[in-house]
């Protein structure tokens, strides 16, 4: 084959890669944390009790990262509240002021089994969190699934329902 033909064909191939990417594009970011054990930690809850990763052993739970300054968290709050009757929901109060968080819960309703206070976001970083809200399904101390952004019926059915 001639160089000119090889080059022409290669370049056309490049176009099809771009074209394919554009057509098949899905923007859901993959998570690096699923399948791994829940990271080790030792922190306080909003009530001032001590809590560690051992809490999750033998339990099935949703872990929800939220904050009083986060608007989307307020949006997903009613949906989570409905689910709280089926499964235990543990909150991680992310980069928040303790009194703001308590006020927010009093105002909007508190269905969380407990809330881990994570004032500077260290636990959240260990979970690969990039912002609030994010939710995880934890089964027996292991992270099974991860949802970034608002948790709703559709995402619940896609990411969490198959494991429940």
């Amino acid at each position: 084959m001639q160089l000119s033909k090889i080059l022409a064909i290669t370049l056309l191939g490049v176009f099809f890669i771009f074209l394919g990417k554009l057509i098949l594009d899905d923007k859901t970011p993959s998570s690096n944390i699923t399948g791994k054990p829940f990271p080790q930690f030792q922190q306080l809850t909003l009530d001032g009790n001590s809590i560690s990763h051992e809490y999750f052993i033998g339990k099935k739970a949703i872990v929800n990262v939220w904050a009083s300054w986060c608007i989307t968290c307020l949006v997903e709050h009613p949906f989570l509240s409905e689910r709280a009757s089926e499964i235990s929901i543990i909150g991680i109060n992310y980069k928040d002021d303790k009194s703001d968080a308590v006020n927010w819960l009093n105002k909007n309703g508190n269905f969380f089994s407990t809330n881990i206070h994570d004032p500077i976001g260290n636990l959240a970083i260990d979970l690969g969190v990039t912002g609030a809200p994010e939710s995880f399904l934890v089964i027996d101390g292991k992270i099974v699934s991860h949802v970034i952004g608002e948790l709703n019926q559709k995402k619940w059915e896609e990411n969490f329902a198959p494991y429940l």
Partner: peptide
């Protein structure tokens, strides 16, 4: 984006094919 890429693809397919056929 798809239209634009389509447009650029048409131009490239035409010109590179022309080149591959006549260029040598």
């Amino acid at each position: 984006g798809l239209y634009l890429l389509g447009l650029i693809s048409i131009i490239s397919i035409f010109s590179f094919t022309l080149f591959a056929v006549r260029g040598a």
